[in-house]
Nucleic acid binder design. Structure first.
Length: 473
RNA sequence: GGCGGUAUAGCCAAGUGGUAAGGCAGAGGUCUGCAAAACCUUUAUCGUCGGUUCGAAUCCGACUACCGCCUCCA
């Protein structure tokens, strides 16, 4: 039984999807005015890992993640680059797709864009106006936050404190148009003729930020769905507002489980990285010099709610872990294909079963990947010990390999099949080296080993013979 | 000011009442012609103070430090 920490209740709750064996989840995606930074990527990796685990446990997951493709930042950036907002969005959506693909994030079931759902957004706002939850003032449509009696519940804030905070940040326009400082905008009027805008019953304008997520999620997943995720900084006001709008309109509970991922921090002070702070590292830049698999594993191997400290020491550790797993995988293959006979080892077979069950138990507890990985390390140590025996149980190794692949798939780490053939030149060199070794001509054999290393082929001698692997780094 | 999070070895980190998982790095060792890969051994009394308890890292109180949200932000 899977337990999920629900931000709404601040407790771990037993996960019961609305429809048995089906999970419908929505994750807030980026505003596409720049390359994503590793904080954005962390969010995407966290929820992708959660999705993959749910699938590992047999659920059919519908995963929707949006693009915010129109807002002040988009307009500003497009203007600066003298291109349209749409062109800007297309460029960085493409970049997002490339970056997330590199990180082995599964494509979403749907990636809705705000600007592609303007009609639905307008209808949604109209419904709120009809219900008296929203009002129009000179082209602005605002939501009456105070009318929604659960306002502040997600972020555990009371109305007075929220009002106090909100009133300090009002623009002059908002002071004259808002009934209440707490009210938030659903529709913004066009400021100048060149600005991108759509016709609406409230005048030419564009949607506010929060409304798009309510519209897109309920349209694609239903008025009530299972999981809504996003970064911790979205709790207030974004998700609070989403709840208010959606429940005001539908009269039903919006989301059953709210999940929020922790931040990526950088620097000595472990400060939050963000676009606005300017201290961000983009995935695009980072992947110029880093194996994407390593970055993926780095972010997937911390539980989604914990902070991740991005620095080179921690990256180095991830590099070594990924290499360890690669070696394990290749060494299993090597033994599976060697000439030795198989010898049954019931003890190891049982251990594999036990550890796989322990892995599930660990992950079922709010996706505790640290404990899950610990179980995996315990098991891999036993397997590595076994691999050194003169005879191995090939049946168990095959079973373990399958389970191992499934588990690594949850973390988004995949190993290429050893399909690459060696060139004739390399094969001849390996053969020549073996001959030299059998004649104890170690000078020659070591020279050949160095030569092969220069060609990216690493040679390892084992009691079962000489094995090779490609050095990818 | 309000709300929330975190504090465990050099680093990462698990652990919510019974005398500290795991990983990295370090040290030593096994295997090897030498390597590589792998394995083995080895390193902490849990931010501070006080309380509850037979017994607390784990519960309660106070304090300190760092981080975040309250305004765009994953």
């Amino acid at each position: 039984m899977i337990k999920i920490f629900n931000t709404l209740t601040r407790e771990k709750e037993l996960f019961k999807p609305i429809h048995e064996n089906e999970v419908k989840m929505y994750v807030c995606g980026p505003t596409v005015y720049n390359y994503i930074h590793i904080g954005n990527a962390r969010s995407a990796v966290s929820f992708d890992t959660i999705r993959r685990y749910l699938e590992y446990r047999g659920y059919d997951v519908t995963y929707v993640s949006n693009f915010t493709d129109v807002d002040d930042k988009m307009i500003k950036q497009a203007k600066k680059e003298k291109i349209t907002v749409d062109e800007l969005a297309n460029r960085f959506i493409e970049a997002f797709m490339a970056d997330t693909k590199a990180l082995n994030i599964k494509p979403a079931t749907a990636n809705p864009r705000a600007t592609h759902m303007i009609d639905d957004i307008i209808k949604f706002i109209e419904a709120l106006v009809e219900k008296d939850y929203a009002y129009e003032v000179s082209g602005n449509v605002y939501f009456r936050a105070r009318h929604f009696k659960h306002y502040g519940e997600l972020s555990k804030q009371n109305i007075e404190q929220l009002e106090n905070g909100a009133s300090q940040h009002l623009t002059q326009e908002e002071v004259t148009t808002k009934e209440d400082p707490l009210d938030f905008v659903l529709w913004k009027p066009q400021k100048e003729a060149s600005e991108v805008a759509w016709d609406s019953p409230f005048g030419k304008g564009r949607p506010g930020w929060h409304i798009e997520c309510s519209v897109m999620s309920t349209k694609l997943l239903g008025e009530t769905f299972d999981i809504h995720g996003g970064g911790q900084d979205l709790q207030f006001p974004h998700h609070e507002n989403e709840i208010a709008q959606s429940e005001a309109k539908t009269g039903h509970k919006f989301v059953n489980y709210w999940m929020h991922n922790g931040f990526v921090t950088v620097g000595n002070q472990n400060e939050k990285m963000s676009k606005s702070a300017g201290n961000f590292v983009t995935v695009h830049d980072l992947l110029q010099g880093e194996d994407p698999t390593v970055l993926r594993f780095f972010m997937a191997s911390t539980q989604y709610r914990r902070p991740i400290h991005y620095n080179d020491d921690n990256m180095q550790e991830a590099r070594e872990r990924v290499q360890y797993f690669k070696n394990l995988y290749q060494n299993i293959d090597y033994r599976l294909n060697d000439q030795t006979s198989s010898q049954e080892n019931t003890e190891l077979a049982q251990l594999v079963n036990e550890k796989v069950a322990e892995f599930k138990a660990a992950m079922d507890d709010d996706f505790n990947v640290q404990n899950g990985l610990t179980v995996l390390y315990e098991l891999t140590r036993a397997i590595n010990q076994h691999l050194q025996e003169s005879t191995v149980d090939k049946t168990v190794l095959t079973i373990f390999k399958e389970e191992f692949i499934k588990i690594m798939t949850v973390f988004g780490v995949e190993f290429n099949q050893k399909s690459d053939n060696l060139s004739e030149e390399v094969e001849a060199l390996i053969k020549k080296r073996d001959e030299a070794r059998s004649q104890k001509d170690f000078k020659t054999s070591d020279e050949i080993r160095d030569q092969l290393k220069g060609m990216g082929i690493v040679i390892e001698d084992t009691p079962q013979g000489t094995r090779w692997k490609k050095n990818e780094s």
